[in-house]
Simulated assay, not measured.
Amino acid sequence: MFNAEENPWQILSEQNVYDNKWINVTEYQVINPSGNPGIYGKVHFKNRAIGVLPLDADMNTYLVGQYRFVLNQYSWEMPEGGGPLNEEPIDAAKRELLEETGLKARNWTELQRMHLSNSVSDEFAIIYLATGLEQFEPEPEDTEQLITRKIAFDEVYNMVCNAKITDSMTVAAVLRTKLMLLEGTLPLQ
């Protein structure tokens, strides 16, 4: 009898195969759970993924459109970015919201913590709801060419349901927010 929560993988060796300021890739020689030799690759993220779903008093949210290099396609999503592991996640969220939309929020609620692709990476995300919004000038990074759209939350919810939005953090944030609305637990300030 085995304990299902114990690690069934045996690591024989590991080799660092790639490293930059954002990620590290390691290849492991392993014995897999059924006892056979194999390899496993792991992408380690050096930053925490941060997402912010801004919601104004009229139930509008703000989406950011940008071309995603890795996907080779355009994507509509909530403001997102990376927060250094030594930075408070809420501070990273405030910075990302201002950078991408020019918005500042008086009220912050943590919506969700999640792993983004636990089969090949350890990327971890924290998602916030931002309310009590005030508009300032956006401050995008030089790697960003963004378009910001103010859209009714219900329309964004329909975009998620119809797979027009596929970014996992945005999907999770919108579905969590919709559930909280239905339950009457969403802090609308």
Rank of each mutant, 00 (worst) to 15 (best):
R48F: 08
A49I: 11
V52K: 00
V52R: 01
V52S: 02
V52G: 01
L53W: 00
P54I: 02
P54S: 07
L55Y: 13
L55G: 10
L55R: 12
D56R: 03
D56N: 05
A57I: 08
M59N: 15
M59K: 13
N60D: 11
T61M: 08
T61I: 06
Y62T: 05
Y62V: 05
L63Y: 01
L63P: 02
G65M: 06
G65A: 07
Y67K: 06
Y67G: 04
L71A: 04
N72V: 05
N72E: 13
Q73V: 03
Y74E: 10
Y74K: 10
S75Q: 14
S75E: 15
E77A: 11
P79H: 02
P79Y: 00
G81Y: 02
G81R: 02
G82T: 12
G82Y: 14
G83E: 10
P84Q: 12
L85D: 06
L85H: 11
L85Y: 12
N86H: 13
E87C: 10
E88H: 14
I90R: 11
D91M: 10
A92P: 04
K94G: 06
K94Q: 09
R95P: 02
E96K: 12
L97N: 00
L97D: 00
L97M: 07
L98D: 01
E99L: 10
G102F: 03
G102Y: 02
G102A: 06
G102Q: 06
L103Q: 01
K104R: 15
A105N: 04
A105Q: 01
R106G: 10
R106T: 13
N107H: 14
N107P: 07
W108N: 01
E110L: 15
E110P: 14
L111K: 09
L111A: 06
Q112S: 15
R113W: 11
R113H: 15
